[in-house]
């Protein structure tokens, strides 16, 4: 899927593929027990992102310029080396699904233990999002807000020049 995005020159197809890619990753999130995240990814990636990309294509162009030689060697080498280094790094990582991994030992047990009693809300994700991590969420909301303002300012400026 991702490789298809890489190879295609028709940007319309690229955008459609990226929408499907989002939906697939949403399914992946469901199997990984992250229903809230899957929900968000499906509505954001499959819905809003695709529409915005299409709007951009409508305003610009939907053909990518076919360059000299599809495969560029220097970036490919950089990517391969980085990837190899990262894979070497994963050899020390905890196993997939391991309940004794460090990430499962820190604050998560406390959230799972306490949050239903402290907040009376069964969905731990919601209570952590809004209560334990309230500052985080506020910051993220501010980022979204600022991005929205930024888009308005960029787009609402001068109208298209006649040339």
């Amino acid at each position: 899927m991702a490789v298809g995005i890489l190879r295609l020159h028709n940007l319309l197809a690229v955008v459609m593929l990226s929408g499907i890619y989002s939906l697939i990753s949403a399914c992946l999130f469901v199997t990984l027990d992250a229903v809230d995240v899957a929900f968000t990814e499906a509505s954001v990636g499959g819905g809003i992102a695709t529409v915005l990309m299409l709007a951009t294509l409508g305003l610009t162009t939907d053909r990518e310029k076919t360059g000299k030689g599809n495969l560029r060697l220097v970036p490919l080498a950089v990517v391969t080396i980085t990837g190899a280094a990262l894979i070497y790094g994963t050899l020390d990582m905890p196993l997939f699904g391991d309940p004794t991994a460090p990430i499962q030992q820190h604050v998560a047990p406390r959230y799972i233990e306490e949050s239903p009693r402290a907040t009376g809300i069964p969905n731990i994700v919601t209570s952590v999002l809004a209560s334990y991590r309230g500052y985080d969420t506020m910051g993220e909301l501010t980022v979204i807000f600022t991005a929205g303002i930024g888009v308005v300012l960029i787009m609402a400026g001068r109208r298209r020049r006649e040339d």
């Binding site: 229903v35 809230d36 929900f39 809300i121 069964p122 969905n123 994700v125 919601t126």
Partner: peptide, 8 residues
């Protein structure tokens, strides 16, 4: 969102 998947 308090009870099932979902939220703001």
């Amino acid at each position: 969102g308090d009870f099932g998947p979902g939220g703001g």
